[in-house]
């Protein structure tokens, strides 16, 4: 029986938005917001995160697609863990900071692609036999992010280097992966936060 993703996981979707990276240097305002978010965290909150509505939706979805979220934590749980280990939210570059900010604010993971390398619309689908991502074969049926022409990356994995963002002046395609139980408001907010933090508006 062929299994349609929209019947199996109603609400699973990729939402995308374009923005311009005006400057690849870290933004002080974003840094302050990351510091504020870091100060809210302690060990108990990091553990209890999994009981909040959106993180719980990602955990359930991970289980349902065969990923153990205790071995491979969801993005927001990984960010919380990194915050505890590092003692703060470390800034690296404008785009990574923006994606981290969007993730911490909404619990929705957002991925950045070089817009020129992607042909929207972006969707979530099952890999076909012989499809490649990041130079390696994808087992048929693997859940992937794909554009009109090809597979972009395995679902929840970082994009291939060829599609990674190069920096200043680049047009960027932001993709939020929303799972069943995550409202359109949350995913839209994640994209808005990331886009504003990148474009500096």
């Amino acid at each position: 029986m062929a299994i349609e993703l929209d019947q199996e996981f109603p609400g699973l979707r990729a939402e995308w938005r374009r923005c311009i990276c005006s400057d690849n240097r870290c933004d002080a305002g974003v840094g302050e917001r990351l510091d504020t978010l870091a100060s809210r965290f302690n060990g108990r909150q990091a553990i209890e995160l999994r009981q909040q509505q959106i993180p719980a939706a990602y955990r359930s979805f991970y289980r349902q697609i065969g990923i153990d979220p205790d071995l491979e934590p969801t993005h927001v749980e990984q960010a919380a863990l990194s915050r505890l280990l590092a003692g703060g939210n470390r800034q690296s570059d404008r785009i990574s900071d923006a994606l981290l900010l969007a993730l911490l604010e909404t619990s929705v993971p957002v991925f950045a692609f070089e817009a020129a390398a992607v042909a929207p619309p972006v969707e979530i689908r099952q890999a076909l036999a012989g499809e490649l991502a990041g130079g390696s074969d994808l087992p048929p049926g693997t859940l992937i992010l794909a554009d009109r022409e090809r597979a972009l990356c395995q679902l929840f994995e970082q994009p291939d280097v060829a599609m990674a963002v190069t920096g200043k002046g680049a047009e960027i395609l932001l993709v939020a992966v929303a799972v069943p139980g995550v409202s359109a408001i949350a995913s839209d907010e994640a994209l808005t936060i990331a886009a504003e933090a990148i474009s500096g508006s």
């Binding site: 553990i47 009981q51 697609i65 065969g66 491979e72 087992p139 049926g141």
Partner: peptide
């Protein structure tokens, strides 16, 4: 998840489940 939170600060040792994804099971 509720059991893990209830156990905090102790850590529950849970059996690891074989990863088979990400794909439709």
């Amino acid at each position: 998840s509720a059991a893990v939170c209830e156990a905090f600060p102790d850590r529950l040792e849970l059996p690891e489940l074989m990863p088979r994804g990400p794909r439709v099971q």
